[in-house]
């Protein structure tokens, strides 16, 4: 199986590290000979139809910041041209997410479908904004579209709901889908510190981004709940439809008040028949949704299996790449006899 990797930042590098590490395992367990035939970043691309050397690619990127410096095989080619011209079975789209326009990832995905390539992505921007448009392209060109890594990082949820829980009607999904806010609230509760202090500390530790707006405003959670609503519950909603409240007004006193009543406060994304919202909620102390630190959790309410709860790591390069790799394997297993 030949794959084009689009985007060579934190996640892209994680994917390369994981594939490099698992190469033999993939061959012996699944018979999958996985080759990365192109890697693209802002500078251009490295292309080798027989498969790039992954250690060299990582080294070039680490040392020069540009994949186009890959010896002999580096080129100044645009990403769209690579997608159009390089022969491959699938692309892995891992460019930085844009929650306002979904670009340039949206264009990359559409071009991939048009050029007969399956799409595997961790990119939530285009999914949250143009889910139906993207899935209709996948259907039109009869290609597979997988995006497990876009919600909850390594925590299995989309494929769990669509495959393992197949046959169930899923009536409600709610959960903590943002690790940064969970870290902040957990720390505020434990150490009785105010929001700004904990946020600063989280930024110093690299847990929160320099611009934490998308996390603390609830926007990141909103994008993820929209993806779940559309992909699992067949809704046709967009970020603008989400009733949104962040965690910036939560105080240590509010957390103490919640504790006195037997609760904690978590930023919860929620979708059900009449609900699509993100906001701080009281969660009983002994509830399975009360997970600490930067963990993610989701509860699916289903007609047959009733409640199913999953917990996992919502971020991190290797963790997210785990979900991407499982999507790659799944595409391979579905198409190997074609």
């Amino acid at each position: 199986m030949k794959v084009i990797l689009v985007g060579f930042g934190v996640i892209g590098k994680g994917v390369v590290k994981v594939i490099d590490k698992k190469k033999n395992h993939l061959k012996s367990k699944y018979g999958l000979d996985l080759k990365i035939v192109a890697i693209c970043d802002r500078s251009g691309a490295a292309i080798d139809e027989n498969g790039l050397d992954l250690k060299t690619a990582l080294k070039v990127k680490e040392e020069t910041g540009k994949i186009s410096n890959y010896p002999e095989k580096g080129k100044n080619m645009s990403i769209v041209d690579v997608i159009k011209t390089v022969d491959a079975d699938a692309i892995v789209e891992a460019t930085p997410t844009n929650i306002e326009t979904g670009e340039p990832a949206k264009t990359h995905m559409i071009e991939a479908f048009k050029n007969g390539k399956h799409v595997i992505t961790a990119n939530k921007g285009p999914l949250a904004l143009y889910f139906n448009e993207l899935t209709s392209y996948a259907e039109k060109y009869n290609k597979i579209f997988r995006y497990e890594a876009s919600v909850g990082g390594a925590m299995p949820i989309i494929n769990l709901a669509k495959e393992t829980l197949a046959g169930n009607e899923i009536t409600e999904i709610k959960g903590i889908l943002n690790g940064t806010t969970n870290y902040i609230l957990t720390k505020m509760e434990k150490e009785k510190l105010d929001f700004d202090t904990v946020l600063k500390e989280a930024q110093e530790l690299g847990i929160a981004e320099t611009n934490p707006h998308q996390d603390i405003s609830g926007l990141d959670t909103a994008a993820k709940i929209v993806i779940l609503a559309n992909s699992i519950m067949n809704k046709n909603v967009s970020i603008k439809d989400v009733k949104l409240e962040g965690i910036t007004r939560i105080t240590p006193e509010a957390l103490t008040m919640a504790n006195k009543s037997g609760y904690t406060i978590k930023l919860i994304g929620e979708v059900s028949e009449n609900k699509l919202e993100v906001g701080p909620k009281l969660i009983p102390i002994d509830d399975p949704m009360n997970v600490k630190g930067s963990l993610n959790v989701a509860m699916l309410n289903t007609d047959l299996a009733k409640e199913v709860v999953v917990v996992g790591r919502g971020a991190g390069d290797i963790e997210t790449s785990s979900a991407i790799l499982s999507d790659i394997i799944s595409v391979y297993l579905r198409t190997k006899n074609e």
Binding site: R249, T251, E253, A254, T256, M257, K260, S261
Partner: peptide, 17 residues
Amino acid sequence: LDLSMPDPFKESSARMK
């Protein structure tokens, strides 16, 4: 109803059932 007002100029918190 339970009220916590750590500082009259800052926001307070209350809990109710």
